[in-house]
Design a protein around this nucleic acid. Structure first.
Length: 826
DNA sequence: GGGGGAAGGACCA
DNA sequence: TTCCTGGTCCTTCCCCC
């Protein structure tokens, strides 16, 4: 109501250019676009989706404006220079033009729809689509006449075509048909490149060479007879299909024109490329009752364009002659070329470029307006050049899973979904034997705004727990960023990328467990990264007991490690047993013997809780109890589950982790013993497994740098938790001017915290640590961050050598922790 | 200041 | 009532040399 006429017009024009009918698809020629667009517009208007599309469109318009301003500043001299460069490059490209390969792009016609029509013949004459009211995957040619096409929401399609039948997708079925088709592809090119279930590139150059010498019998195919041979069991409906593919209309071309005669029994195919491809399509139709279209050309770019030329059930060939290629490209709309989407199309249109001929004429200008990659691509397109080598077995770069749902605002539900996604993804990763270092969380809010948040771990992960540990922290930041408002989501996804190569999977360094088991052989047991942990499980049957503990040990995350149980825990999602499980689990493990890194006492048959307690005692400087106590698992579990009293020394918590809703700040609970916490270069705490940065509301923040609490509940932490704050409290004298070294119990001046830190470092460095460091130079991820957290990074940086700070800064150690947080006490 | 890596957004099929 | 998956490119930022 506030828009004037002109604004309204521009609004509609923006809308249309974005969500209007895209009739760049076979079977959609000559439609009444205005009428269809009006319906789409009316149905979409006012929706959140539409508003977002409009926003995106305005961004594109801004890009175009910027581009036009840039264009206006280009001088004749610049253009001349650019033209010279383009000419030079064109000459080089012409010289290297390769026309010797025969590349085929095969595309099944309306694939999903065709499969459904085949299996349900009554659909054949009706407009139908596959998908749901939310989104359609594809439509048949009847429906396309109404403007119904793939990637259109079902409810809009219904407006366009009220009689539309929407069939749900059945991917198992499509996969099975796809496998049949691929079998045929492999006979023409064993290394064909599938692009999706219904599409593939083939290089049939070698096949054609061989084919030349084939006798006619090898090129003869018999028509499937439903009443004879192997297909005797086929139903009447199936027999009927053979007469006409479900995607074909009565006047559609047949893949085998000569079959229409009286002699329909056999078909002999020639030796040319066209004949070979026609044979392939014939065989596909015989085997699946579905038709395919194909493009034959000297490169992939051209073949792809060609396959669309005579759809459905047709093929088109560009012979390997430069002149013919150039002629073909001349009138080709740029949008027909794979890789040119609606944004690029609009940007080029703003420069008066619609077809490939115009594109070729404007390359010099484009070279001044677009990136090198982009304009080189434009130049290739305008010359009709493309890849002549079908990339085989290219490595997967990422794996992800995402889900769209009705609005979800409840944090607990969101965490639960996040875990489900991680579980699915973990299964997929493990199925393919992949492990990746980067975990990305994708969120789409109810306004359709998409955000991705990622962090890269120090080692590759593949288990649900590991992925979730990272993903939930990313999610937490997003939830917190809008707090106290709820985060309203409509999509969530998790991705793992940065897959490691085979050699990276080798274990590099002993873990803290190996370190603590001084003298014992830890090779093949605990290893430094999750990937290696799994390897250890595979390699060492005898070490199977290590499996859950070793894996789960990696799980603690930022939130696990940065929250001290404040006593008000039950409602918080991070308090779910599933999240805390790792901390519990590890403490129940009983190991043959461990060596205390402080007093160097060897302890036999000790469980980790007892061992932890022992180190606590050592660090407090009190009497060392060399007799390990065994806590039985249920008792320990009970203790760990118990809420710590506000001020009590009775409860012994190995490490607690919770989120206190009353406190907005994070509180790290940094146990000195087993739970793994390390500092980053600045001495701030971070999760032991990764550091990451993320951007929230345009401002970068470092998730790992969770500042110490200015939170009332911090003082309520159980003293037996032994976080650094507690140690400070215990160690500092009454006037706060000195600290007692937790190792040697000697008072040290705090005038220079760096010196104090160095002193603690020296104490800890002695004996076991020194020996360990000498025998285990830091490589990649270290599993001893718990110790590092109190002694700084000196000599034990988890960073690879290249990233190690040259100067051992005083910043990144305990002093900063004291200054920044418990600093007031100091 | 440049190179390289990470993160995040956008585009495309 | 507007999908899912995966690849690529570009920009920005930061660290390191």
């Amino acid at each position: 109501s506030v828009l004037n006429h002109k604004q309204c017009e521009s609004y509609c024009s923006d809308l249309l250019s974005r969500i209007a009918l895209n009739d760049n698809k076979a079977g959609m020629e000559g439609l009444d676009r205005d009428k269809i667009n009006k319906i789409i517009l009316e149905t979409s208007k006012g929706s959140k989706f539409y508003e977002n599309e409009l926003k995106k469109e305005q961004q594109v318009n801004q890009r175009i404006e910027k581009m036009m301003e840039q264009k206006a500043r280009i001088t004749k001299e610049q253009l001349k220079q650019a033209q010279a460069e383009v000419d030079k490059l064109t000459c080089e490209l012409e010289r290297s033009r390769e026309l010797g390969r025969v590349i085929v792009h095969v595309d099944m016609d309306a694939f999903y729809a065709a499969v459904e029509m085949r299996d349900c013949p009554e659909l054949k004459d009706k407009p139908m689509a596959v998908g749901s009211m939310s989104m359609l995957s594809t439509s048949n040619y009847h429906a396309r006449r109404f403007g119904v096409r793939a990637a259109m929401p079902g409810f809009i399609a219904k407006k366009l075509c009220p009689n539309l039948v929407i069939v749900p997708t059945n991917f198992d079925k499509y996969r099975a048909v796809s496998a049949q088709v691929r079998e045929i592809f492999s006979e023409y090119d064993p290394h064909f490149m599938p692009m999706s279930l219904d599409e593939a590139y083939l290089d049939i150059t070698e096949h054609l060479e061989e084919r030349k010498h084939w006798p006619e019998t090898m090129r003869t195919y018999y028509i499937c007879d439903a009443k004879t041979g192997n297909d005797a069991d086929r139903s009447a409906a199936e027999s009927e299909r053979d007469e006409l593919s479900p995607v074909l209309f009565e006047d559609s071309p047949s893949s085998s024109p000569s079959l229409s005669g009286a002699d329909r029994k056999a078909e002999v195919f020639g030796t040319s490329a066209e004949e070979a491809v026609r044979e392939m399509r014939f065989r596909i139709e015989q085997k699946t009752s579905l038709t395919a279209s194909a493009g034959i050309a000297p490169n992939m770019m051209l073949a792809k364009v060609c396959s669309d030329k005579n759809k459905p059930n047709g093929e088109y060939r560009i012979p390997p002659e430069r002149q013919v290629v150039m002629e073909f490209m001349k009138d080709l709309p740029v949008r027909k070329v794979s890789g040119v989407g609606k944004v690029t199309e609009k940007m080029l249109a703003a420069l008066g470029i619609v077809n490939c001929d115009q594109l070729g004429q404007q390359i010099a200008l484009l070279s001044l307006l677009f990136s090198g990659t982009s304009w080189h691509n434009f130049l290739h397109i305008s010359l009709g050049l493309g890849s002549t080598c079908i990339e085989r077995d290219s490595e997967r770069k990422s794996m992800s899973t995402e889900r769209t749902f009705v609005e979800m605002s409840d944090a607990e539900e969101q965490y639960s979904l996040c875990r489900d996604l991680c579980q699915d993804l973990a299964q997929d990763l493990q199925r393919e034997g992949l492990k990746g270092k980067t975990v990305t969380l994708k969120l789409k809010n109810v306004k359709f705004e998409v955000k991705t948040r990622a962090f890269t771990l120090q080692y590759a992960v593949c288990t649900e727990e590991e992925i979730f540990a990272a993903a939930k922290d990313l999610l937490k930041v997003e939830i917190d960023s809008v707090s106290p408002q709820p985060l309203k989501l409509r999509l969530m996804g998790v991705r793992v990328s940065g897959f490691i190569s085979a050699e990276d999977k080798k274990p590099l360094q002993r873990s803290i467990m190996g370190f603590l088991q001084k003298g014992g052989s830890d090779s093949g047991s605990f290893t430094q990264c999750a990937g290696s942990v799994l390897k250890a499980e595979e390699d060492s049957d005898g070490a199977s007991f290590l499996k859950p503990q070793a894996t789960e040990m990696k799980v603690p995350s930022v939130s696990d490690l940065s929250n001290t149980n404040s006593g008000t825990d039950t409602t918080s999602y991070v308090n779910k047993p599933a999240v805390l499980k790792p901390s519990f689990k590890i403490s129940t493990q009983v190991l043959p013997f461990l060596t205390c890194p402080v007093c160097n006492t060897e302890m036999k048959d000790v469980n980790l809780t007892a061992f932890n307690n022992h180190i606590d005692e050592c660090l407090k400087g009190s009497a060392v109890d060399n007799e390990p106590t065994h806590l039985d698992a249920p008792k320990e579990q009970e203790e760990l589950n118990r809420k710590p009293p506000a001020s009590s020394s009775e409860s012994r918590t190995l490490k607690s982790s919770s989120h206190d809703p009353s406190c907005n700040e994070e509180k790290p609970s940094t146990s000195i013993s087993v739970p793994l916490v390390e500092t980053d270069e600045d001495g701030d705490f971070k999760t032991p497994f990764f550091s990451h940065r993320t951007k929230t509301n345009g401002k970068r923040s470092v998730l790992s740098k969770k500042k110490m609490p200015v939170c009332e509940s911090s003082s309520k932490a159980s003293p037996t938790t032994h976080n650094l704050e507690a140690i400070t409290e215990m160690s500092s004298d009454s006037n706060g001017s000195s600290l007692t070294c937790p190792v040697c119990s000697q008072p040290q001046s705090t005038d220079d915290l760096a010196l104090f830190n160095r002193h603690v470092d020296m104490c800890l460095n002695q004996d076991v640590l020194l020996e360990f460091r000498e025998s285990h130079p830091p490589v990649g991820h270290s599993d001893e961050p718990a110790l590092k957290s109190v002694r700084g990074q000196q000599g034990s940086s988890p960073l690879p050598p290249s990233k190690k700070p040259k100067v051992l800064s005083t910043k990144h150690t305990i002093d900063k922790f004291f200054k920044g947080n418990a600093g007031q006490k100091v």
